[in-house]
Write a protein that binds this DNA or RNA. Structure first.
Lengths: 228, 228
DNA sequence: ATTATACTTGTTGTTGTTACACTTTTTAAA
DNA sequence: TTTAAAAAGTGTAACAACAACAAGTATAAT
């Protein structure tokens, strides 16, 4: 049967999200090769024969962005025959939530953070991949307080609430949010205060290293929206 | 750089679960080629250049088992370099929950249902893939009453509870279970009774075709087990 | 001192969850 | 026909989680 070659090119692509300047941002690289030369893309690269998919993702990330030691999770595999205009490339997408202050990401004209809700034109199906990572992030938020992985090590509850509101795209009640957050295991109240604003300083909190998927199963409840 | 050929063989493998004879079972095929000749495996096959991953899964399933028109969901992509003893094969695993009565699956010495908790030796990493599908099924059950996809079209609440208990591997309280189930949208009480047992007949229920991920978000609550 | 701004805090009604035991219906056997 | 065995069916009360809601407090700038 013609057209049925059994080998394909396989890449990994990595969506890295953080919160920076009060916005959810994704790390993008500018492509310097065809196809999509000079378009922005999420960092990615070919999987080598000797490595598994996780290893490939870690290596590619290091090569492209010099970012290391972050939690990566496999997201979804995209394999539309037309997703790459030239050849057949199947990509296994990964995603990560990071604290941008934890990494010395030297941005440049070719490597930069972009607001997730205000993306430039992207190469391939990378827009779809980012959308999907957002969906997954929301699912994670409903399960456990992973937002702390996005915020600085020390954060105010208002910052955390803003992060939730940004990702879930809905307003939360301040008192209910705080009530719930402070019962979260691993959260530690500090005797320090942020003085960034010129108004009343906010108490800082931090998260002790906690096991994910811990007792508190559902952190932010799903909305009971009428099956939209 | 040697050893860094960029193309790989890609397969799809499909975990099909059902409940049959009071047990959670998975459909397996006996391999008639090396490697793992005569070992059981989940149905799978190579992805063609012209089809996307979903299409490949649907086609392979039809070819190997003659099963059509079922809901397939991408599960996870397994890409360990050593998962295939001969060549580099990355597999994109899918899973499905079906009502065995809905399909005329002609079992044979080469195609048969096997109890998930009592599997024969399996080819490749297929045991791991089945374990992972079980995890995903549990997550689905926590979200919505997908068990109805496993049961016959008409089922008793006891059957449904047994399905839940089997998949979640824990006992549920009969009264609480029923109380919760009957509030589920889409469940319809029938004026028919099962007379399979020689004891008091049980009322039959059915599910109207409902949209998944509907209002009732969390169907079976997560256990608050002490972070085992 | 005043003002503007963001931070902080508690109660109540509602809903969902768990724990728990007896009665009813049916068939088969005595 | 009575009896025994097996599975079906049913309600309440205490507790936990959730949603809705408004006023006082600390700081910096004027």
């Amino acid at each position: 049967m013609f057209n049925e070659i059994k080998t394909h090119e396989i890449t990994v692509d990595i969506v890295i999200l953080t919160i920076k300047n009060d916005a959810l941002q994704v790390l993008l690289v500018k492509r310097n090769n065809e196809p999509f030369k000079d378009k922005w893309a999420i960092p990615g690269g070919y999987v080598r024969m000797s490595e598994n998919l996780d290893e490939a993702a870690i290596r590619v990330l290091k090569e492209k962005t010099d970012v290391e030691n972050i939690y990566l999770e496999q997201l979804y595999t995209f394999g539309d025959p037309l997703r790459h205009p030239v050849s057949r490339v199947i990509t296994c997408a990964y995603f990560a939530l990071i604290r941008s202050e934890d990494f010395n990401i030297v941005t440049s004209p070719d490597l930069a953070w972009h607001k997730v809700f205000d993306l430039p034109p992207l190469a391939f199906d990378h827009k779809e991949i980012i959308q999907y990572s957002l969906k997954r992030t929301r699912e994670r938020l409903e399960m456990c307080p992973v937002a702390y992985q996005l915020l600085n090590e020390k954060f105010t509850l208002t910052e955390m609430q803003k992060a939730y509101e940004m990702i879930m795209e809905k307003k939360l009640d301040k008192r209910n949010f705080r009530k719930k957050v402070i019962t979260t295991e691993g959260l530690r109240e500090l005797n320090e205060f942020s003085k960034t604003s010129s108004k009343r300083p906010a108490r800082l909190y931090t998260f002790e290293t906690i096991k994910l998927n811990s007792k508190r199963a559902h952190f932010i409840k799903k909305t009971t929206n009428p099956t939209s």
